[in-house]
Amino acid sequence: MELDIKGILEHLPHRYPMLLIDRVLNVVPGESITALKNVSINEPFFTGHFPHHPVMPGVLILEALAQAAAIVSFTSAGKKPDDNTVYYFVGIDGARFKRPVLPGDQLRLEVTVERTSRGIWKYKGCAKVDGQLAAEADLMCTMRSLEC
């Protein structure tokens, strides 16, 4: 299954400036996702990180991986986010940054579901630019209802 921006907006609660997925190339519910983030000089974080040498913050690369993971979780659960559903990061292990991500780069986000247990999803994610590893991490996330 592929998703354009309209489909992404239906599967994620995030909006500008925190929406970090531009296209989903493939999602296999319960298994994996491959998505893209086009990194533009117009990103709001580049004005301060860093003015004379713009580099995408590593924490936002991890957030992009988590957003890709959220799409897998929502499609696997057969749900779409609503005002009563929140998707939280609950852990990040083994995060490593291998190369800077610069304006003009396209991040290829690859996330694989490792396992799920009691509402906790565990993933292995990597972000690549031109086939080179930019970042990798093991992620844990959960979906929670805000209803009492």
Rank of each mutant, 00 (worst) to 15 (best):
E2L: 12
D4V: 03
I5T: 05
K6V: 00
G7K: 01
I8C: 07
E10N: 14
E10M: 12
H11K: 15
L12D: 08
L19S: 06
D22M: 07
L25W: 12
V27Q: 07
V27W: 12
P29Y: 11
T34Y: 03
T34E: 15
A35E: 08
L36K: 14
N38M: 05
V39L: 02
I41G: 01
I41S: 05
N42Q: 04
F46A: 00
T47P: 02
H52G: 11
P57M: 05
G58F: 10
A64L: 07
L65P: 04
A66E: 02
V72G: 08
F74T: 10
F74H: 14
A77D: 15
G78T: 13
K80D: 00
K80G: 00
D82I: 00
K98M: 07
R99F: 04
P100D: 05
P100Q: 12
P100A: 06
P100I: 06
V101R: 13
L102H: 06
L102F: 08
P103G: 06
D105M: 03
L107H: 04
R108N: 00
L109H: 09
L109Q: 08
E110G: 02
V111P: 01
V111G: 03
T112Y: 07
V113G: 02
E114L: 12
E114N: 12
E114A: 11
T116S: 04
R118E: 04
I120F: 03
Y123H: 11
L133I: 09
E136M: 06
A137G: 04
M140D: 01
C141K: 02
T142V: 08
L146M: 07
C148K: 15
C148P: 13
